[in-house]
Amino acid sequence: MNDPEDSLLPGAEEAPESGPGTARGGRRRAEKRPRRLGGCLVALLLVGALGGVAWVGLTAGVDWVKQQFAEAEDFSGPGSGSVVIEVSPGDTATDIGRTLHDAGVVASVEAFTDAARGRSEEAARIQPGSYEMRKEMKAADALGVLINPGNAMVTRITVPEGLRAVDVAALLAEKTDFSKKQFDKALTRADELGLPDYAGGKAEGYLFPATYDFGPKDQPVDMLRAMVDRWRQSAEQNDIEQAAQRLGYTPHELMTVASLVEAEGRGDDMPKIARVIYNRLENPGTAGTIGRLEIDATVNYALGRKLGVAISTAEIDSVADNPYNTRRQTGLPPGPIEAPGDAAIAAALAPAKGDWYYYVTVDLRTGETKFATTYDEFLQYKAEFQTYCQTSDAC
């Protein structure tokens, strides 16, 4: 309901305090009638003369009073047909009511806001998204649709950790009505994805793994941008800029380390694996190392295939000059090889303390991983793994 102070009638600024449209109760104060003038018409003309308001102004005032005390216009039936409306983040009850009214769902904004006021706690929890409504619905019924989160028209997709950008595109294409070609094209639209400058226009590593709800109006670029936005949230929470300064790397290099950690480890081992990577980068030649990370997942990335596939020496040599092949190239690869999650990012930004230069997963079923500080210790763990493979079909 509008406040009378926000709806001044024509001439209200010049009218005396007792004029129409200014009294809080919506009625004029009683006035003493002149004894020698009678009849309704004469009285109305006198009011107009004394108040400086014409007959039109008085009529408008009467209409305004009726509007304030009358019930808001509302439809009586359940409605018919179908229309999709969009509730945006930050929308107020008035905003939603206006959207519904413009779409022909409710008869008036006031009817919806009145209904929302009566169920304020539930209305406050209306989720952004798309909703299928009928036209000419009773406002209370329209509210009932919106306060049920199960009525939001969304496609829920869970993107797991460790996927390459091409794998993300394939997953989204499988779960939506868009083609992989459309997602691949969207991946090239770096400016629209919201990537950080240091990503170099490439989305690899910046499509954050999480569960997403996409609406019917979302296009491929919108979906990918939502994933980059979620990455930004993680980067800010982990303060990647400050960590980069503290560790002596760029944010992009830290994201590259995080992707390697994601590919190589799990759980509590991640900070230790991050430390192995940093030790090898910062102390080349120590403990029998030769200045290379020697991570097989990077070779698979260079070969353009899923990262967990076993590799042969011939395959390593076939991409010997590829900068992502850490079996043959020194230092970090040019960028991330897959999308790391929160745990891997946190490990890259806060590696464990230790003198490890090697790690060997000795049990593929449990993921048990042992860390070595010397080459001889590494050979011992490697022999343990080989013995495990002789008695397990997990290898």
Rank of each mutant, 00 (worst) to 15 (best):
residue 353 K to V: 14
residue 104 G to M: 04
residue 324 Y to L: 01
residue 293 L to Q: 13
residue 377 E to K: 15
residue 110 E to T: 09
residue 13 E to M: 08
residue 347 A to P: 13
residue 237 Q to I: 05
residue 388 Y to G: 00
residue 177 D to W: 07
residue 228 V to H: 15
residue 363 D to R: 06
residue 178 F to L: 04
residue 268 D to S: 09
residue 1 M to D: 10
residue 93 A to S: 08
residue 161 E to D: 08
residue 83 V to Q: 11
residue 272 K to I: 01
residue 53 V to D: 02
residue 257 V to F: 05
residue 154 V to K: 12
residue 109 V to T: 07
residue 43 A to T: 15
residue 159 V to S: 00
residue 376 D to T: 06
residue 159 V to A: 00
residue 317 D to I: 06
residue 180 K to D: 03
residue 57 G to Y: 04
residue 8 L to G: 11
residue 88 S to W: 14
residue 210 A to W: 08
residue 38 G to Q: 15
residue 253 E to C: 03
residue 175 K to L: 11
residue 326 T to C: 11
residue 385 F to A: 07
residue 12 A to D: 08
residue 199 A to P: 00
residue 355 D to E: 11
residue 251 P to L: 02
residue 200 G to V: 03
residue 191 D to H: 02
residue 182 Q to T: 03
residue 240 I to W: 15
residue 394 A to N: 15
residue 225 R to A: 03
residue 286 T to V: 06
residue 353 K to P: 14
residue 26 G to F: 10
residue 33 R to T: 15
residue 261 V to Q: 12
residue 119 R to L: 08
residue 175 K to I: 07
residue 226 A to K: 11
residue 189 R to G: 05
residue 304 G to K: 14
residue 124 A to R: 15
residue 179 S to W: 09
residue 10 P to L: 04
residue 201 G to S: 05
residue 302 A to K: 10
residue 322 N to T: 00
residue 220 P to A: 05
residue 216 P to W: 08
residue 74 D to Y: 07
residue 27 R to G: 12
residue 241 E to W: 06
residue 136 E to Q: 15
residue 120 S to P: 14
residue 318 S to Q: 06
residue 154 V to W: 09
residue 261 V to W: 13
residue 162 G to M: 09
residue 197 D to P: 00
residue 196 P to A: 03
residue 370 K to R: 15
residue 175 K to V: 03
residue 316 I to L: 07
residue 389 C to D: 01
residue 151 N to H: 11
residue 195 L to F: 05
residue 270 M to P: 06
residue 300 N to Q: 01
residue 322 N to S: 00
residue 93 A to R: 10
residue 355 D to M: 09
residue 255 M to L: 08
residue 386 Q to M: 07
residue 256 T to R: 14
residue 6 D to P: 07
residue 325 N to F: 09
residue 53 V to R: 04
residue 73 E to S: 02
